[in-house]
Amino acid sequence: MDTELLKGTLALLILSLLNRRTMYGYEIAATVHRDTDGTFTWREGSLYPSLHKMEAEGLIVGEWEEKETGRKRRYYHITKKGRGALREKMQSWTELCNAVNRVLEKSDGQD
């Protein structure tokens, strides 16, 4: 998939996933990969600047947790502000999809 298109949707995907449950970075990347059947392939490194930016904006909060294995992972969970932002983004996305779909449907009918 076009990486530019993906960039615009990355925040929406992250907020959406974190709305399900708390996750750590690799888990987010792996879930996106699995749930989209590999449609979304991006440089995994670009996930973290987005996570840190959203954390700075107060949309999510990251916390270190140590597992039984001794490994520490930074788990992110969505905030109240993040949920509000998610709703707005989902609405925008829906509107965008509907608008794009309408154009595509009309174009498709003319073939």
Binding site: R43, E44, G45, S46, Y48, P49, H52, K53
Partner: peptide
């Protein structure tokens, strides 16, 4: 390779921090 080139990742992190 999946994570991306160090220069790109560094540039994105520097843009944030």
């Amino acid at each position: 390779a999946d994570f991306g080139g160090p220069e790109q990742v560094r540039a994105e992190l520097e843009a944030t921090h």
